[in-house]
């Protein structure tokens, strides 16, 4: 299963939805950490079939090449703090 929960998955599991699913008049609450986690998890998923060492190299390379320094630093903080929603391999690669 995809490690990225959809609002529905989350709701079913009894967690609050990670972002608003309400109609247009609600401004979209912007949660930077959630967003970074989601992007990082998507990348982890893309390399999921690779063996761990290869995947970690590939993820480091990818994020190192495309993400800004500030984003990488925030990701590192999240990984070091072992943010629970963060993919385990990302945590190992960046923590």
């Amino acid at each position: 299963m995809s490690p990225i929960p959809t609002p529905q998955d989350a709701a079913q599991a009894g967690h609050p939805a990670p972002r608003s699913v309400h109609a247009e008049d609600l401004a979209i609450p912007h949660d930077d950490a959630a967003h970074l986690i989601r992007m990082a998890n998507q990348i982890a998923t893309a390399f999921r079939l690779e063996p761990e060492d290869k995947a970690i190299t590939a993820m480091r390379e990818h994020i190192g090449k495309f993400w800004t320094r500030a984003m990488r630093e925030r990701l590192k903080a999240l990984a070091t703090a072992a943010a629970p929603d963060l993919d385990a391999r990302i945590r190992r690669a960046f923590g």
């Binding site: 995809s2 990225i4 998923t45 893309a46 079939l49």
Partner: peptide
């Protein structure tokens, strides 16, 4: 390259 299908969110 590996191309596993992952359903969109």
């Amino acid at each position: 390259m590996m191309t596993e299908y992952v359903a969109t969110d």
